[in-house]
Structure formats: structure tokens, C-alpha cells
Simulated scan of single mutants.
Amino acid sequence: MVWTGGDMFDSQSMQSMGENFGFKIGTLICLDNLWQPKCREELYQSLGDDRKVIFLRVLVCGDCPSSKLSVLVLAQRLGFRAVDAGGLCASGALEEAPLLLFPSWRGPLLAAATLFTFFYLYTALKNVLMPYLDRGENNLYHLPLVTVNQALPAVALVTLALVYLPGLLASVLQLYRGTKYKRFPDWLDRWMCARKQLGLLSFLCAALHAVYSVCLSIRRASGYMILNAAYRQVKAGVENSWVETQVWRSDLYLSSGILGLGVLCVLALTSLPSVGHALNWREFTFVQVRQETALNPLTPDAAQR
């Protein structure tokens, strides 16, 4: 038995393809609502044939090894990436997979949101609340743009550190155990599986930081601050306010930030499956590890600008 969604193939086309590939499809069931509870057990028990396999798109579950192998070969020839997901009992856990909303992104999104909330509140406390309590300054206009821009690079750096930290912990654990063939703890295994999502979130925060930094110079508050600074300069009789150290410092910060964002773009692109599969192991390791070594010195601390 081959069980597939009703939106994939009709009965006649599947039967013809099965005959062309030398695979006998005894019973074909196409359902529009594939994920009804306990549906697979009822269908499985209703058929007397022992050679039954449930084909959930690219995940194949079945108790007969020969039938399951035939379905795997058929799926691969049809252009799918078939995976042996175990026996029939494993199909119960697979039924809920298409109904979950970004299951692999929940942990990384929660971590990024927690970090952003922490750094945002810390920056707001330091630059908005404390000046108001100390000197009576009203800096509430910093909250929608400036405070967010100061929190984003911190989140990007910490999230990027969380991408490479589990690999180091795994190496230390393997050295401590003296073997690399023992399974990692569940928390470390889940952490390592979430590295791709954490890296993409780090790139998102860095890209948003770049956009926010460009918008800082075009906001109305920047124009008022420039006018006030020019008025104070004229009133003080200062003809030239050029400060060489500040000019070099700002240019170096901007240049290193642009280079760091470029390296993050390369890392994000190589994380895509279509790009990563086109690279061999040495090329992928060079991009993911070597460029990360050069990334940390290039990333400026936005809070010091």
C-alpha cells in the first residue's frame, strides 16, 4: 500500500509510474485530508496484504523491509529525497510534523527575543531613565530608533557567539569522554541543531542594525542637533571644530561594520541548502570557520559610537 496526499498524484498516474519502475502498487489510497487522527491504523488494518508501506511524501514508514525498499527506490526515481523513517509505529509522530508552525525556529526565536528584550531594557535604563532621574533630560524620543539600533548589534554578536559555542562544548565533551561515538546530551544536541537558525537571526539583526544606522542621519532629531551644535559653535566663536581622532574613529567604525556585515552575508548565503550543497567539505569549513575568526575584530560596538 502506498499512501500519499491527494494533491500529489492521481491513482492512474501512480499506477502507471509504478509499473514503469517495476514496482507493483497493490493498493493506492489518495486522501485530501491526510492528517486525520488514527487514520493510518484504520487503513493499515483494513487491508489484508502484509506488504504495506505508508509513504508520507518523503518519509517512508513500514514493517516490511522489502516493500519499504521498493518504495524508497520509487520515490528517489520520482525525484523525491526519500528517507527511511522506521517502522509503522514511527508514522504516528510524523503525522503532526506538517501541522507544526516553524518547530525548529521556536528555540532560536525565543533566545533572540529574550536577548533583544534584555539589551533594549538595559539601553533604555542607561540612556533614557537615568539621565531623566539625574539631570531631568527628556530622552524618550530615543526609544523607537536609537535604543533599538543600540540593542540590535549586541543581539547579533551574542547570537553569533551562540552559533559557535556548542561546537566548542561538543569538542571538549568528546575529549573528556575519549571518544566521539557517544551521543551528546539532549540539550547540546538540540542546541547544535539550532545553529543554522541562530546564524540567520544574527544576520537579520546585523542587517537591521545597518538599516537603522543609515536612518539615524535622516531623522528630524538629527537635523535639530546639527543646528544646535552649529549655533553653539558660532556663539562660542569657534571657526574650525575638526577633531582628527573622532574623524578617524568614526570612519574606522563604519568601515569595520560594513566589512563585518559583508562577512555575515557570506555566512548566511552558505547556510542556504542550495548554496551549501554546491560546496565541498573543505570549502564549507573555510567559509563557516575561517571567516568567523576574521569577523569578530571587524564588528564594532555600536554603544561606543
Rank of each mutant, 00 (worst) to 15 (best):
V53D: 03
L56I: 12
V58R: 11
L59W: 07
V60C: 14
V60S: 02
V60M: 09
C61K: 03
D63I: 02
C64L: 01
P65M: 06
S67N: 09
S67I: 03
S67G: 13
K68S: 06
K68H: 00
K68F: 04
K68E: 05
K68I: 01
L69Y: 04
S70F: 01
S70V: 00
V73C: 09
V73T: 15
L74V: 10
L74P: 05
A75F: 03
Q76C: 04
R77N: 14
G79V: 11
G79S: 10
F80H: 11
F80R: 03
F80W: 13
R81Q: 15
R81C: 12
A82I: 00
D84Y: 03
A85F: 11
A85V: 04
A85R: 09
G87K: 00
G87T: 03
C89W: 05
C89P: 02
C89M: 06
S91V: 04
S91L: 07
G92A: 11
A93R: 06
L94Q: 07
E95Q: 12
E95L: 13
E95G: 04
E95M: 11
E96M: 07
E96Q: 05
A97L: 14
A97N: 07
A97W: 08
L99K: 13
L99Q: 13
L100R: 15
F102V: 13
F102D: 12
P103Y: 11
P103N: 09
P103F: 08
P103V: 11
W105M: 07
G107L: 15
G107N: 04
P108T: 11
L110C: 09
L110W: 09
A111E: 12
A111W: 07
A111V: 15
A113M: 10
T114P: 03
L115D: 01
F116T: 04
F116G: 04
T117L: 14
F118P: 00
Y122E: 08
T123G: 12
A124D: 12
L125D: 06
K126N: 13
N127G: 02
P131Y: 00
P131E: 04
Y132E: 08
Y132R: 08
D134I: 03
D134P: 02
G136V: 02
N138P: 09
N138L: 08
N138F: 05
N139F: 00
N139E: 02
N139G: 04
L140S: 14
Y141W: 15
H142A: 10
H142C: 05
T147K: 05
T147N: 15
N149K: 05
N149S: 13
Q150K: 13
A151T: 00
